[in-house]
Simulated assay, not measured.
Amino acid sequence: MSQHATEETVADLWAECPEEARQAAERVVGSPANWQLMRRGSHGTAKWHVSGPGTQQVVVKAGTGQAADVVAREITALAYMQAAGITATGYGNDAQGLTGLTSDYTAWLVRPWLTGLTTWSAFQAVRDGHHPDVTDYKRALTAAVDLCTAVGGLHQHGWVHGDLQPHHSVHMANTRTVQLLGCTWAWAPELAPSPAYTGGLVHLLSPELAAAAESPTRPVITSKSADVYALAASLWWSATGDWPLNYRAAAIDPTAHTAAGLRRMIAARRLKISTTSTWPQLTELLREVLTADAVQRPTAFQLAQSLRRLM
């Protein structure tokens, strides 16, 4: 466990990790196992990085009660995508389980620990601004192209991710493949959207998805076009370290508003796209995507091709 977790937190979180999940993880990593609490998820899920004397490491995610619904939805989405042959979400064999039959049931998921840079990390040298060189820009652009290509492949199979973020995409070491994490809200014709979905990280939401999330209609149905907006917003954030939405110009402190309040502002188009001096070639290309109407946005594959031209 993380040394930063309090004893009370550790006890509470251990209670949410079923014995079956602990055993499944430790069968892979060996014993004694080191359990490091990574974070408490926004929907109440708990997540651990587990290592041991073996060569493999895993991630364990668990949730109890309402949080179990979130983990169970991810289990279902991953199973459907694996059956569809989607490689961008098909990393490794996994163990997963659903226990209990009441409102207190627990769901758990064990997945391989992935080795590689996230998109966010691939942009670090550019974002930090400490005299990045040609290699730094090439690394960032390659990551951007590969991420867009992975999302394009997902879309080609008829799936929408629904919560793309630069911290949730891992660029596998020594390959040009990307694994997309955070697939809880993914949907396709064979798996209906979740009624609990509200659009993902609010700062990366397209105006039309923000409007759908704030409407009374459920489920909220996102689209491939909204995924492309989130792609462009994620790359902007990765390159600049700031949200693409210009909260400052609108005299808005985003931390002082609820997600629902920010979604209403985005839906009403009260927030313009920021201006920046960081990497003008890239940010101007992304601005075109972020300001386009949904029907005029490029596909993920088209965005990848536009990014290649900057290399």
Rank of each mutant, 00 (worst) to 15 (best):
C183M: 14
D136F: 00
V110K: 02
L285I: 08
A144N: 00
T102F: 04
H49A: 11
F123Y: 08
L147C: 00
Y197H: 14
G129I: 01
V202T: 15
P254S: 09
A125N: 05
S234M: 10
T255D: 13
A107I: 07
M38V: 15
A239H: 09
W236D: 08
L245F: 11
A196E: 13
Q165I: 03
V10D: 03
A72W: 11
P53E: 09
H203N: 08
L204R: 11
E8P: 00
S51E: 10
S31Y: 06
L245T: 12
G54H: 11
P244E: 04
V60A: 05
R287W: 04
F123N: 07
L181C: 08
R248F: 06
R127Y: 01
P18T: 07
R287H: 12
R73K: 15
P53V: 13
E214F: 00
L141H: 03
A125R: 13
Y247Q: 09
L180V: 14
R263C: 03
H130R: 06
I221V: 15
V160R: 01
L245W: 12
A62Q: 12
M1L: 03
A186H: 07
N246Y: 03
L235F: 09
Q165R: 11
S121A: 13
S2R: 13
G41S: 10
C183P: 01
W35R: 13
D128V: 05
T119M: 02
V60W: 05
N93H: 14
C148F: 00
S2Q: 08
K47T: 15
E19T: 13
P298I: 07
L164E: 05
G97Y: 07
E7P: 10
T198E: 09
V295R: 06
A213G: 12
F123W: 14
S121M: 02
L201E: 10
A21C: 07
T291W: 01
H257I: 05
Q3F: 01
E26M: 06
W237Y: 13
S274Y: 00
K47S: 12
Y80N: 05
R22L: 06
L310S: 09
P18G: 05
L191P: 05
N93G: 14
Q124E: 10
V170W: 01
A88P: 11
S121K: 05
A15F: 02
T55C: 03
P298K: 04
E284K: 05
T222G: 14
G97P: 11
H131D: 09
M172S: 07
I75Q: 15
P244Y: 10
A259G: 06
A46D: 04
G63T: 15
L141N: 04
T291S: 01
A68L: 10
W236G: 09
